[in-house]
């Protein structure tokens, strides 16, 4: 259960990424190996770093989080992180590991990580 997890955080807002990374700091087994602020840089980061887990925002400038998953075959597991729950059903359809609402509740984050 305590395998090291290499995580990538994708969100167009710096503050949102910062907040999530701060929360992940409480989980020793998670190491944030990179950040991306849009889909093109996320694609690059995934190819270069090969993360185990991706925290993915949905509404981003240009392509959305869903577009990213359509554009490339992602081996990593995906946890969607977004402000409002209208996309929950679609998240199911793409086999996401979980769906977290911003501002993320630390307990909810812990539960999501346990699913791995």
């Amino acid at each position: 259960m305590n395998k090291p997890i290499r995580a990538l955080v994708v969100d167009d807002e710096r503050l949102a990424r910062k907040d999530l990374i701060a929360l992940l700091g409480a989980h020793d087994q998670v190491t944030v190996i990179g950040e991306a602020d849009d889909v093109p840089s996320a694609v690059e980061a995934i190819r270069a770093l090969n993360p185990d887990l991706i925290f993915l925002d949905i509404q981003m400038p240009g392509d959305s989080g869903f577009d990213l998953l359509e554009k490339m075959d992602v081996e990593a597991q995906v946890i969607f992180v977004t402000a409002y729950d209208e996309f929950a059903i679609r998240a199911f359809e793409v086999n996401a590991l979980d769906y977290l609402l911003k501002p993320v509740n630390p307990e909810r984050l812990a539960k999501a990580l346990e699913k791995r």
């Binding site: 807002e13 503050l15 949102a16 910062k18 402000a83 911003k102 501002p103």
Partner: peptide, 18 residues
């Protein structure tokens, strides 16, 4: 707009120690 509200709260939380 709920996106606006929750995103703003999220940003505030991130700013507190910065």
């Amino acid at each position: 707009n709920p996106h606006f509200l929750f995103n703003s709260l999220n940003s505030i939380r991130a700013l507190i120690d910065e």
